[in-house]
Amino acid sequence: MTEQSFTFDGRPVAFRSGQSLGAALTAAGVRSWRTTRADGRPRGLFCGIGVCFDCLLVVDGRPNERACLQPAAAGMQVESQEGTGHGHLEV
């Protein structure tokens, strides 16, 4: 089977077909990829089934994707997320 990869904060992360971003990152030893809005605390997978919205990250420029639900795809540019991901809307 050919090795596929996406990038996470610029470095390649390998994944198997059908794996979620959250599963691939965890398998690669990455446990957190978001900071909380109020206190900047680290967050990663919590419920793992799409309910808790804790494992948010930025996928190809789109903030607030759930890592546990988003299937990994070759060439995806995944970034860790700070805050709401919508800072430009603040009034």
């Binding site: 607030n64 709401t84 919508h86 809307l89 603040e90 009034v91």
Partner: peptide, 9 residues
């Protein structure tokens, strides 16, 4: 909605 910064006062 998903959590946002203060967008509506």
């Amino acid at each position: 909605t998903e959590p946002l910064p203060r967008v509506v006062r």
